[in-house]
Computed example of a mutant assay.
Amino acid sequence: MLLRRWRPEDREPFAAMGADPRVMEHFPALLDRAASDSLVDRADAHLAEHGWGLWALEVADPAAPDDAGRFAGFTGLARPRFEATFTPCVEVGWRLPAWAWGRGYATEAARAALRAAFVDVGLEEVVSFTARTNTRSQAVMARLGMRRDPAEDFEHPLPPGHRLRPHVLHRLDAATWRRDAVTPER
């Protein structure tokens, strides 16, 4: 996977992802085009200012010639904009279109983002969190070597009773990543 800056031609497939109920199953709402474009604008501005953030994903796998060069969502690093017991922090996250699921793309891209976090940015810890019902993303977190302590699970600041309010939290510190993480660069 290639992690790169956003391009104008990414907007249409990204908007399609935000309107896909399968992709957005574990998010509070679908995104309309304006909200989707706003997210792209914020992500690209953060990348331009800081050199890290939510990168656009592109398939760069020569073993997948039909997908080579195809936009495949995003992955990267972000600062959550809500307060919780574990904030402030930096999280690693991803969102891929349904056609890209089950191919290892999220894990590969998140590994590259973690490498950036610990090597390039110099972070000491990265977290990841998702709705308790999102077992696919939790499996990616486990493959990344992130650890969950159920005592740290939390209620996302969604309205009381919202089906996505219960969240799980995973952590990975730089020392553990250096010792244990399997990355393509090693």
Score class of each variant (00 low, 15 high):
T107E: 02
V182I: 12
P160M: 00
D153M: 03
P150D: 13
R136N: 13
L123G: 12
P150L: 13
T176W: 00
A139N: 00
L169Y: 07
R165V: 11
W177Q: 06
Y105S: 08
A151L: 15
L96M: 13
P150N: 02
T133N: 01
R178A: 15
V121E: 11
V126F: 14
F129K: 04
A110D: 09
T135I: 12
A106P: 00
A174E: 12
A106V: 03
W101R: 09
T130I: 05
G104P: 03
M146L: 12
W101G: 02
L96V: 15
V127M: 11
R178M: 09
R132D: 02
N134E: 08
V121C: 06
E125Q: 15
R143L: 06
R163Q: 09
T107F: 04
A116Q: 11
A151S: 15
R163L: 09
A113S: 15
D149L: 08
A131T: 07
S137I: 06
P150M: 10
G122C: 09
L123Q: 03
A181D: 03
F154M: 09
T183S: 08
G102V: 07
H167G: 08
D180N: 11
A113T: 03
Y105L: 15
T133V: 12
L169Q: 06
R179Q: 11
P157S: 04
A174L: 04
A117W: 05
P166C: 09
R111N: 06
H162N: 10
A131Q: 07
A181E: 01
V182N: 01
A117N: 02
D153T: 05
R147G: 04
W177F: 12
V168H: 06
V140F: 04
W99Q: 06
V168Y: 10
V182D: 10
D153A: 06
A181R: 00
A110N: 07
P157Y: 11
R171N: 01
D180C: 14
H156F: 12
H162F: 09
P160Q: 08
R165C: 13
V140Q: 08
P166W: 04
G104V: 02
W101T: 04
L169I: 03
S128G: 14
A109D: 04
S128K: 01
A131L: 07
M141C: 10
R179D: 11
T183E: 08
N134M: 14
R115I: 02
A112K: 12
H167V: 06
T107H: 00
